[in-house]
Design a protein around this nucleic acid. Structure first.
Lengths: 340, 340
DNA sequence: ATGAAAGCGCTAACAC
DNA sequence: GTGTTAGCGCTTTCAT
């Protein structure tokens, strides 16, 4: 007898019987196999529709060895990077009608391993492992019998396929933009120095300054990624009488927000007196800030999208290797408008 | 011959052969069936582990008629409500080791229907349909052979199971809190009036004011959910010489943020001159605002959690009916601190 | 305690 | 064109 707690959906056999044909004919009919007469095909399809027959993908997968699903393992569903990466990935996967199994590993390697096991038992065709930082993470690919793509947090193993954003280049772009806005005296407020996102951005900024024959104004201080650090660091800059700057690069948007608040409190005009540029393009901050914040977007959605594409390639037998860096995108807003 | 493009994972048969036992004995051994000797059981389990055997959940599901997966259909992955609901749902589902299939319907009913079809063919044991507003939506449960729970956007059909937040009560609580902070002259800035979230909150606030023998100060204006409306509406209040208020209820955080900005621009102190309370507890706004924003949290994560619980109940044969309203939670921050 | 065999829902040879 | 049959990987009677 058939099991299942809930209502039973009709099986192909039920459709076949009603249509008065054999199981295999019904199957062929539904697959538009040319070896069934147009008549039977239409009949079967009509009946299948009437019975709202839905093929059992489990049975189908069991046969062809592919499930048509991929696993997404996030390390942090509350952060918005992972969310955006998910969106991007779901977008391309969904359009290829690949279903997405989502799990949240909460940045816990043990939990991550458990989830991966579960996903493997569901026979996902591939896996996207999403980190919440751009710092490299240990590879797991050796223990995983399906293709894996690392998103945002690249794998330490250069053989693996990873996608993340190009923070060094973002640092360069920040400087480049400020220079093209006519600023020459640029200060930098760093983020949390334990993140490569911070040190990479600094690196890029310093390179670009150097190429322009410039040095940053004042020391590059590091702190945390939040607004209060932005406030504090800005005060430190303002309180140093030796410092004279007309632009500040803030290594994320919370810092930038705090920075702008302090500048305004001190009676300085943004961007007239000091231009401010942020990183991460966090809509809720960037659009609400007055002036709105010019920003570098790390295109998390595109990272997700690209990860999905790379995964699909790998599933189709064309694996990628190494870390693919996506260029960040400059979003010009009010906080850096060129001096008139 | 066995198929599949990628590496093959070992089958139970492979394990059985290596252990020198039959297929069925191996199966029993792995399931701790007491009818196999401790010796064979250990042997089989060890070998299974060595070969890193992972049972094929597809095959298992095919047999027992349940897939151990549920479908999550979001209407909007970019908004943070759906994201939080997802988190909550994944949380309880994951803990019951039910896997989550995520799809994004982009608020498009056609796309939603397609995704549901796909999920049904994957034989999900249940479905959570997440809306991005609290306005009721058409029911689909009749066409779906598995249990469905509607989250955030409740179903129009009272027979269905829905969870969302209690906006009316949230409106009451906003007033209640301000009253208990000693405010009596309360103004209200509405959100987008086409949302029940706006009208419900107003309703609750008016009820609570009425019970206290009060009326709102000035007209209740509606606009959009964004910061510029908050700014504009606040100016309208301030520019009316007949109006005298010591508190403003803003129906979301963007509005509140704009409101505070204007109050400060006009030289008013928050909360000393005017207390401000927001709705939705949008961390990135609420914590960054100066002063930090007292707020009503609609507990989207808990909505997701509850939806998952209700779904599990239904899957286990104990369906829920009707709309379950979760009380919002007051988050006291600086913007309403009682006058000294 | 162990194994053989039937079957979950479906597809893909292979006959007719 | 259509039907019969043998699996996909696993669980589960039912014999032994």
């Amino acid at each position: 007898m058939r099991k299942g707690i809930i209502k039973e959906s009709p099986r192909l056999e039920d459709v076949a019987k009603r249509a008065g044909v054999s199981l295999s004919t019904a199957s062929k009919a539904l697959h538009d196999n040319p070896r069934v007469s147009a008549k039977t095909r239409q009949l079967v399809q009509r009946i299948a529709h009437e019975m709202s027959y839905t093929p059992n993908a489990l049975a189908q997968s069991l046969i062809n060895g592919m499930s048509g699903t991929v696993g997404l393992v996030t390390s942090d569903m509350s952060g918005r990077f992972c969310t955006q990466i998910m969106m991007g990935a779901e977008n391309v996967l969904g359009s290829k009608s690949i279903s997405v199994l989502l799990t949240n590993a909460r940045n816990d390697p043990t939990l991550e391993a458990m989830h991966i096991r579960k996903l493997l038992s569901l026979r996902v065709d591939g896996l996207i492992l999403m980190g919440r930082e751009t710092d490299p993470r240990p590879s797991l690919s050796e223990d995983i019998p399906v293709p894996v793509v690392y998103a945002y947090a690249p794998s330490e193993n250069p053989q693996d396929a990873s996608v993340t954003c190009d923070n060094v280049d973002a640092g360069r772009m920040a400087v480049g933009h400020l220079l093209s806005c006519g600023r020459r005296r640029i200060a930098i407020i760093g983020g949390d120095p334990s993140f490569s996102a911070a040190t990479d951005r600094t690196q890029g900024s310093l390179d670009a300054l150097d190429e322009a024959g410039l040095e940053p104004v004042g020391p590059i201080r590091y702190g945390t990624w939040d607004g209060s650090w932005g406030r504090g660091a800005t005060r430190l800059l303002l309180d140093d009488p030796d410092l004279d700057f007309d632009a500040i690069i803030c290594q994320n948007d919370q810092i930038a927000r705090g920075c702008i608040d302090v500048l305004k409190e001190r009676g300085l005009k943004v961007p007239d007196d000091v231009a401010v540029i942020g990183h991460d393009n966090w809509k809720e901050i960037v659009d609400v800030a007055r002036p709105t914040l010019t920003d570098l977007d790390n295109r998390a959605v595109d990272i997700g999208r690209r990860a999905a594409e790379m995964l699909i390639d790998a599933i189709n037998g064309h694996p990628h290797h190494g870390v693919e860096l996506l260029k960040c995108k400059l979003i010009q807003r009010e906080s850096t408008v060129p001096l008139e």
